[in-house]
Amino acid sequence: MLDTTPLTAAVERIADRLRAAPQSRLQRGAAAEGLALARELARRAQRIEAPDKEPMIMPDAGVFAVADQLGVAGTDLAESLRMAAASQRELDEAVECVTRVGECLRPLL
């Protein structure tokens, strides 16, 4: 079974940073970047769970909810990867995506 700990750990690091960020920084782009990442992770999970169905777009629940949305999307993707017996490559791509966004968020947080 695939160990998705690197994915969930990377997602939680970013979510924690978003939770700790002041409103001004969230509004200057950090929340938008976090939501974009949450939407991407949710899209990946949906593609695994229902490959023939068009993925739904995660709604924008506001700057103060984005950290939780990211946490949920990351957990959903990790579980989808585990349950589908996905490849290590799929997991590595997801971790790379999260890491890349985390690096982009650094100056915003």
Score class of each variant (00 low, 15 high):
Met1Asp: 14
Leu2Thr: 13
Leu2Asp: 11
Leu2Trp: 09
Thr5Arg: 15
Pro6Gly: 12
Leu7Tyr: 14
Leu7Phe: 11
Thr8Cys: 09
Ala9Tyr: 00
Ile14Ser: 04
Ala15Arg: 06
Ala15Asp: 05
Ala15Gly: 05
Asp16Ile: 01
Arg17Ser: 06
Ala20Gln: 13
Ala21Cys: 09
Ala21Ser: 14
Pro22Cys: 04
Pro22Val: 13
Pro22Trp: 05
Arg25Tyr: 00
Arg28Ala: 14
Gly29Arg: 07
Ala30Asp: 04
Ala32Tyr: 06
Leu37His: 03
Leu37Thr: 01
Ala38Trp: 01
Ala38Val: 06
Ala38Met: 05
Arg44Trp: 05
Gln46His: 02
Arg47Thr: 15
Arg47Gly: 02
Ile48Met: 05
Ala50Phe: 06
Pro51Trp: 11
Pro51His: 09
Lys53Pro: 00
Lys53His: 07
Pro55Val: 03
Met56Leu: 15
Pro59Tyr: 07
Asp60Gln: 03
Ala61Gly: 02
Gly62Asp: 09
Gly62His: 08
Phe64Glu: 08
Phe64Ile: 05
Phe64Cys: 00
Phe64Lys: 08
Ala65Met: 09
Ala65Pro: 02
Val66Gln: 11
Gln69Gly: 12
Gly71Leu: 05
Asp76Pro: 01
Asp76Asn: 13
Arg82Gly: 05
Arg82Val: 15
Met83Pro: 00
Ala84Pro: 01
Ala84Leu: 02
Ala84Phe: 05
Ala86Leu: 03
Gln88Gly: 01
Gln88Lys: 02
Glu90Ile: 02
Glu93Lys: 14
Cys97Thr: 15
Val98Trp: 08
Val98Thr: 14
Val98Arg: 12
Thr99Gln: 13
Arg100Ala: 13
Gly102Phe: 11
Cys104Asp: 09
Leu105Gly: 06
Pro107Met: 10
Pro107Glu: 10
Pro107His: 11
